[in-house]
Design a protein around this nucleic acid. Structure first.
Lengths: 336, 336
DNA sequence: CTGTTAGCGCTTTCAG
DNA sequence: CTGAAAGCGCTAACAG
């Protein structure tokens, strides 16, 4: 593998000049810059990260932290897609992507600590946002930069940079979609309000319902115990027989619900994952574009030390993907 | 951050001695080993990877390569789970995990090349196995070590270390399961035979059918064009009205099939993913334990340069998870 | 068994 | 604008 000395020699300059030229230092004359560039190409030179890192104390890698894998959270394709986005952008900008996972909080913490200590990684992307997250504490203690996908849940201190869907708006959009199709008795189904996403989607729903002077109805079910959740839902429906539609906080949940209720019950959900397509009828769902969220997060992470003040949060627009799970009560002919 | 010099100073030895002691070099006396160890702990010293890498030409990180994300392959939770296994084992052994993804072959190749060139990563895990894979060629050209999850598809040269499910046996098990429940006209549904997994599962199925002197019936459908695939399947069923059961190469595919056929059609599939649980009726499926596959792969990858000859392949046992998608034709009372 | 020395490949003062 | 030299933190000869 060619080193910078080789390049320098071939270009007839000193290694330091070559280094400067390659990194675009403006003091280098156009002429020598060109010579060096040609030599680089000829030798197919690429810098050695380890050496660069050692000299710079900047190790071109960004750490991506997945949530703890409780209750099969990994079944959500969101994460891999976000990862794909992060990876694409990072590679483009000469960064590598290392990942931290864990099936317990402790394992995840160990993993992150390892990246911090041995890997000297100093920029991270959190693929989730959660109240009182010890991972965040660890990151802060080590003065590592981090950005979060989702709305940061800070108990204290300045907000980190973040990128997010406007989940409140997504919640209102979902609800409005149902209203526009004649639904009035709409319920909201979720699994866990400590996840900020769900909390916000619910808030959006409630906002619209209040505005329309309709009653908000929400139900928490995680389907860890399938039969029990099943019963709850059935019971809920008996208590609220007028309900014609549900907003569910996620496709997976939407599918679960679909299996319990009548086909005539309308459902709109979030994430537009594979699940929504295989549902029957296919679920109308709000796509949040995980790949874009990933790309944006990577960009934020790459800026982390450049600007002194945190960059503006990025909001990625969402989009309703209309399928067949919402019945139009106002004009039956439009049903597809 | 403490360096090895600090440790050496505190222990009253030279840096090289400290280094030797820390790395367990047997020439160091027990006494000084202890001194150094105490100093290390006192200073909370951890080696700097970059420096180690530069000196050793061994950069404690293992590259994990995901398949190209064609047609929503990322929806398969298999990958994230395997990643989890890899990560757990790697961290345990002081390695970091970097990942390569791509939505096109080119993007993936760029990503891997980047890891090779800049990152100087020299051990990889391939999360898939495919005929004529240019990624493999790239790895070989660069003399990087790699292990594969799945059966390596080599056109030439020695087999790399690998870890796999015995997919032929899994195929025979699935088929036998159906036979034992009275099914005789069994078809096999798959998406892509260039994936070795599918090829082998099919082979297992065919083997048993031949053994029983029954006809093998296979159908390829990828459901990229949903309506078209739908038609094909319907057509297929008309042509083969006696078919009472299907083996499908994956849960996702099983679920697709389930939506087209009658409830009375029996289905057994592979991977035991979330999908099989949300199906209705829930799919009987063969679990291949992705986390274990990941762990084993990591272990193989960590041994890569230690042994001159490739280690024995590891086979991870699979297991049928019985749910409700297979009708028992011999004793209807047993149907659950 | 341990210390001295050189060097991994790169960047960055510091002098010109 | 460019070159010489030192150093990032660690390891591996080479001597003792």
């Amino acid at each position: 593998m060619a080193t910078i000395r080789d390049v320098a020699r071939l270009a007839g300059v000193s290694p330091s000049t070559a280094s400067r030229a390659l990194r675009g230092n403006p003091v280098i004359s156009g002429k020598t810059r060109k010579k060096v560039e040609t030599a680089r190409r000829q030798l197919n030179y690429v810098p050695n990260f380890s050496a660069q890192n050692l000299a710079n104390n900047e190790n071109n890698t960004i750490g991506v932290i997945l949530p703890v894998d409780h209750h099969e959270i990994f079944n959500n394709p969101f994460f891999l897609q976000a990862l794909q986005g992060i990876n694409a952008k990072s590679t483009e900008r000469n960064f590598m992507v290392a990942i931290a996972t864990g099936i317990s909080e402790q394992q995840l913490l160990d993993n992150v600590e390892f990246m911090l200590a041995h890997g000297r990684i100093n920029r991270f992307i959190l693929l989730y946002s959660q109240i009182n997250d010890p991972v965040v504490t660890l990151l802060q203690e080590n003065q590592a930069g981090y950005v979060v996908i989702g709305k940061p849940a800070m108990s204290t201190g300045a907000l980190p940079p973040y990128i997010d869907t406007d989940n409140i708006a997504a919640g209102t959009d979902a609800t409005n979609f149902l209203l526009a199709r004649g639904h009035r008795h709409i319920a909201f189904l979720y699994t866990d309000l400590s996840k900020i996403v769900q909390k916000e989607r619910l808030a959006g729903y409630q906002q619209i319902m209040a505005q329309q002077q309709l009653d908000s109805l929400s139900l928490q079910e995680d389907f860890i115990d399938y039969t029990r959740s099943n019963q709850h839902v059935t019971q809920f429906l008996q208590q609220h027989p007028t309900v014609t539609a549900f907003v569910t906080s996620d496709d997976l949940l939407g599918l679960r619900l679909q299996q319990i209720v009548h086909k005539s019950m309308s459902i709109i959900s979030f994430n537009n994952s594979f699940t929504s397509q295989v549902a029957h009828p296919a679920l109308t769902s709000i796509d949040v574009f995980p790949v874009k969220l990933g790309e944006g997060a990577a960009e934020l992470a790459l800026q982390l030390d450049q600007t002194l003040k945190a960059p503006q949060p990025i909001i990625v627009p969402h989009q309703i993907i209309v399928r067949h799970s919402v019945v139009n009560l106002t004009a039956p002919k439009n049903i597809k």
